[in-house]
Simulated scan of single mutants.
Amino acid sequence: MNTRLLTPSADIFAPFGSLIQMPSEKATVSTEFFDYWHNVCDLSSLEMKEPVVGFLRVVKREFVLNKMEKHVLSDEIFIPLTGYGVFSLCPAENDPSKEPDKITHFFIGSESAFLLRKGTWHWAPYPLTDEMRFLIIVDKATVERDIHIVEFETPVRIL
């Protein structure tokens, strides 16, 4: 199954969470040296008991998706720092191993951050560059208690 890549927008990304991007409106504070937009994403409703920051580095590999994971107790934020790649997501209510047509593949770079709502199926992004680096904000207990992985009988070719 070959797929197409979508450019993330707030509407297209809504089934998975929130897209955090530089606003198009005038900056809250501007000088000749910087522009600053305040309160671009309200995190007060973030579902995390003890948020921590992690670091993720992914390297270029074959564009074949054969498993996905989700976290049912916590939201997760991916903040790309370097590189470009493909981020594959599936809504929480679907089983990507049985419904691969429900998986959406996004072209991503460091222009946006991605707040995934709990339950959203995902896997480590696939770099188009040699590697990608991310800051990850997730609940402290996620790695030990909240990783649910499903493996695919038939892998999904992304590109």
Rank of each mutant, 00 (worst) to 15 (best):
I137K: 01
H105R: 01
F106P: 05
K70Y: 03
F55H: 10
P23V: 00
E62A: 13
A10G: 04
A27L: 04
R117H: 15
I12C: 05
S74Y: 03
C41N: 11
D95S: 12
M132A: 06
T31L: 02
F87K: 08
E99M: 15
D11M: 09
F16I: 05
E99Y: 13
N39L: 04
N39T: 10
E50T: 15
K49Q: 15
L116C: 04
A10Y: 03
R61Q: 12
A27N: 03
D95N: 15
G54Q: 05
G85A: 01
F34A: 13
V53D: 03
R145K: 13
E25Q: 15
N66V: 06
S44G: 03
F63T: 08
S44R: 15
S9I: 10
F13C: 06
E50W: 01
L135A: 15
T129G: 10
M68Y: 01
E47Y: 01
T3F: 07
R61V: 04
T154Y: 09
I12L: 09
D146Y: 02
E25H: 15
G83S: 02
L5P: 03
K67A: 11
V59A: 05
D35M: 09
I137L: 11
L43H: 01
A14C: 01
P125C: 05
K118A: 05
V86A: 12
L56W: 04
K26I: 09
C41Q: 15
L19F: 02
R157I: 14
L43S: 02
E69C: 09
L65Q: 01
V150R: 03
F106E: 07
E111H: 13
F107Y: 14
A141F: 07
A14K: 14
L128P: 04
F106D: 04
L135E: 10
K70G: 02
K140V: 11
E47M: 08
N66E: 11
C90H: 02
A113G: 10
I20H: 10
I79P: 10
E47S: 08
Y84I: 13
E153T: 14
E144Y: 07
H71S: 00
A113V: 07
P80S: 10
P91L: 00
P155Y: 06
F152V: 07
E25T: 14
P96F: 09
I158S: 08
H38S: 12
G109A: 08
K118L: 09
E47L: 08
S97N: 00
M132P: 06
S24Y: 11
A10S: 13
T3S: 13
T31S: 07
